[in-house]
Amino acid sequence: MKKTKKPKLAVWKFSSCDGCQLSLLDCEDELLAVASAIDIANFPEASRAVSKGPYDISLVEGSITTPHDAERIHKIRRQSKTLITIGACANAGGIQALRNFKDVKEFTSIVYATPEYISTLSKSTPISDHVHVDFQLHGCPIDKYQLVEVLNAFLNGRKPNTPAYSVCIECKRRGIICRTVAFSQICLGPVTHAGCNALCPSYDRGCFGCFGPKETPNTTSFADYWSKLGMTDRDLVRKFRSINAYAKEFRLESEAHEG
């Protein structure tokens, strides 16, 4: 790595809350190391200085919700050697993808005084629906250690350690007492992608599924089990239809319980 030209990194924002990009600023101790290893060429949250593409790595946050977004993402792809999407919005459409289950015109007519001015797509979609994505980093927001790990892996030409198994595996490695078994609390951990190190269970809460579906998620069995314990279809829909509502396996499961 030494003495060679520093790789150029750009951060892009689409429909999102900025929380994921802020994880990069949140890296505190690691940030200086990141800044010395890479050239941050475009990162509006951190600096107004912009340098031109092409970029070695583009981090893309947010989902595609407007016709303008849909064009812009292609331009970004053309300028980026590696494109990494970060967070639930970029990977699955985000919380704003709740509109995908309804008619967006209805919302705009209620929310805006002059809905004619609103130019929006009927669906909020993940970046990968529009362009080729090299790597998806999950989370809402992403975990800063995983972000450093991914940048680190790309800089060093190795595979990032971001396993797709369940949150339960991280939960048990930490020795946390299972929310489901010991407290009858619904926890999406068994169907959710690891990465947060079982943050919610460590604070006595069931997993909310921020990291999206794990590898081979058996949402059907999970939902069956909870309905047998008395959970209503309405509550099951709400469980699966949150931050990762439009991620395929969660979407199909919520649809299966809809009236």
Binding site: S166, C168, N218, T220, S221
Partner: peptide
């Protein structure tokens, strides 16, 4: 298989399951 979530809890709590994986991590400089 229809019921199993492949969550891995059973193997984590099993007192004889011994399998492990290896992760190689680097710092940014490599």
């Amino acid at each position: 298989a229809k019921r199993c979530l492949t969550c891995g809890n059973c193997t984590m709590v099993c007192p004889t399951c011994f399998c492990s994986t290896i992760e190689d991590v680097t710092d940014l400089s490599g």
